[in-house]
């Protein structure tokens, strides 16, 4: 669905995007993980043609952004980082205007609006001006705007930042449904680990360069450590752990030991089975992957 080859975009000395290449296959949920300023939004702006690249090639559904943007636009739905809708106009007016720009008839607009209003739960907000809505309500309308013309590719630029958990679930349920029923491709930029962990493929971008790219599971296997948390154990076990020079921390009596992989975890548990009464084995997390790959701590969310 998206093919990017050797894309570069420099802002004077700042290498916002520095020779990146990747492919997003149709129907995939593709996550772009990186800190602010890593180059995620620049890449998205180039795909949307809001920015011109210094060099490189970008194809959407086989069409070049250099030559075929008019044919690409109807396939694109974009949720920007900040709302770009008209704050003084009603939700209905905002969505109607945007739908008309995609050539939707009134009947098509009505059908699509009804579907989205039901799924995103904003039917009762249609006549309200956008600036009278809460942050979560506004975000739902932003997402409805991106989906109003049934795009094949949905680009979500940090869509759930600052959203309450309930709205986040609502949004992801709809995105999952559209992926399932319409094979919609989703390109997501996020710094929420739990969102990235749900993706089919994750690309970690740092200082404009791709530093890791694989499925979340493979990334975890490759870059993340696995852990054991010991809650109830023999007093002598801690001395043995220290003596064996295992990387560990102790917090309020709970010992967390870090291992390279699950084989080591298994071996430790078998060896010390009689000394341990309550424990938890934890597979490596995406924030651990990110830390090991970039050497930087990513904020926001720690699950997954």
């Amino acid at each position: 669905m998206i093919e990017i080859k050797h894309l570069k975009k420099y802002f004077k000395d700042v290498k916002a995007v520095d020779d990146i290449s990747f492919t997003v296959t149709a129907g995939q949920l593709f996550a772009f993980l990186g800190l602010n300023g890593a180059g995620k939004s620049t890449t998205i702006n180039i795909i949307c043609h809001a920015l011109l690249p210094d060099s490189g090639e970008v194809y959407v559904d086989g069409l070049s952004i250099d030559h075929d943007m008019p044919a690409i636009y109807p396939k694109l739905g974009v949720v920007f980082q900040n709302s770009v809708l008209d704050p003084k106009l009603s939700v209905y007016n905002n969505l109607f205007t945007r739908a008309a720009l995609y050539g939707l008839t009134k009947a098509q607009f009505k059908t699509n609006l009804q579907f989205l209003a039901e799924k995103l739960d904003f039917a009762n907000l249609l006549q309200r001006p956008l600036d009278k809505l809460s942050g979560g309500q506004k975000r739902r309308i932003d997402i409805a705007r991106a989906l109003i013309h049934q795009p094949q590719l949905l680009i979500l630029d940090e869509p759930t930042t600052g959203l309450d958990p309930q709205t986040r679930i609502l949004v992801w349920d709809l995105v999952s449904e559209l992926r399932r029923t319409r094979q919609m491709t989703v390109l997501l930029t996020t710094h929420y680990m739990e969102e990235a962990a749900e993706a089919d493929h994750v690309v970690i971008i740092d200082n404009g360069r791709i530093v890791a790219s694989d499925t979340p599971n493979n990334l975890k296997n490759q870059y993340a450590n696995d852990f054991i948390k010991l809650y109830d154990y023999d007093a002598g076990l801690l001395k043995e752990i220290t003596k064996a020079k295992l990387t560990h921390t102790v917090d309020k009596g709970v010992v967390t030991i870090t291992f390279d992989d699950m084989t080591q975890v298994k071996q430790f548990l078998v060896t010390h089975a009689n000394q341990i009464r309550d424990f938890e084995a934890i597979k490596g997390r995406m924030d651990n992957v990110f830390l090991n790959v970039t050497g930087k701590q990513l904020q926001g969310g720690s699950n997954g």
Binding site: C48, H49, A50, P70, Y73, N82, L85, G103, R145
Partner: peptide
């Protein structure tokens, strides 16, 4: 200034 124009520019207009 409020970037609404970007929203219009990603439509086939």
């Amino acid at each position: 200034l409020n970037r609404a124009v970007h929203d219009f520019r990603i439509t086939p207009t």
